[in-house]
Simulated scan of single mutants.
Amino acid sequence: MKLIFVVLLMISGYAFAGCATIGDSDQRAYCRAKEGSGTCGSISNRDLRHACNAETNGGSCNSIDDHDQRYLCNARTNHGSCSSINDRDLRRACNAETNGGSCNSIDDHDQRYLCNAKTNNGTCGPINDRDLRAQCEALKH
């Protein structure tokens, strides 16, 4: 869940569909809010809803229960540190996204490609997970 949450946020045959092709309704709503065509209000997952509000509406990350996600949210919105994130791949993605770190040491194949697409103009095509690829496509447009 932690890695999928990251995407929260992020180029293949889904290039024109973007967020609409994401199967998970919470991730689809998050994606739409991030691209400016939706709101966070319909997101059922409490932590994802709080992260969405913080990232799109200036809300607070402090209400996020998951420790790693709270630190990620703070790093994205308040220039907080990624160093306290326990999940290794999530910490590396956070550092790449917020501090110019490298995505190359991320173990999860799909998350590594997503990270590179978000930070280095990499491609979304090699991402195997359909929803994650669609999120990636939406971020690229």
Rank of each mutant, 00 (worst) to 15 (best):
M1N: 03
M1P: 09
L3N: 05
L3K: 11
L8T: 07
L8M: 14
I11Y: 07
I11M: 14
I11L: 08
I11A: 06
A15S: 06
F16A: 05
F16P: 03
A17L: 15
A17D: 08
A17M: 07
A20T: 13
G23H: 11
G23N: 12
D24Y: 09
S25A: 15
S25F: 12
D26H: 05
Q27V: 07
R28H: 09
R28V: 08
A29H: 09
A29T: 05
Y30F: 14
C31M: 15
C31R: 01
R32H: 05
A33Q: 05
K34G: 03
E35C: 08
G36C: 14
G41F: 06
S42Y: 01
D47W: 08
L48S: 04
R49C: 00
R49E: 01
C52Y: 01
N53E: 06
E55H: 10
G58Y: 10
G59Y: 06
S60I: 10
S60Q: 12
N62A: 14
S63H: 12
S63V: 10
D66I: 08
H67Y: 12
D68T: 14
Y71H: 15
L72P: 01
L72K: 13
L72S: 09
A75K: 05
R76E: 15
H79R: 15
H79L: 11
S83W: 03
D87I: 12
D87Y: 08
R88T: 15
R88L: 12
D89P: 02
L90M: 13
R91T: 00
C94G: 09
C94W: 02
E97V: 12
G100Y: 00
G100W: 01
S102A: 12
S105H: 09
S105A: 11
S105R: 11
D108T: 01
R112F: 00
R112L: 00
N116A: 02
N120R: 15
N121W: 11
G122E: 04
T123C: 01
C124Q: 04
C124M: 04
G125T: 10
L132Q: 14
R133I: 02
E137K: 13
E137D: 14
A138C: 12
A138P: 08
K140F: 02
H141C: 09
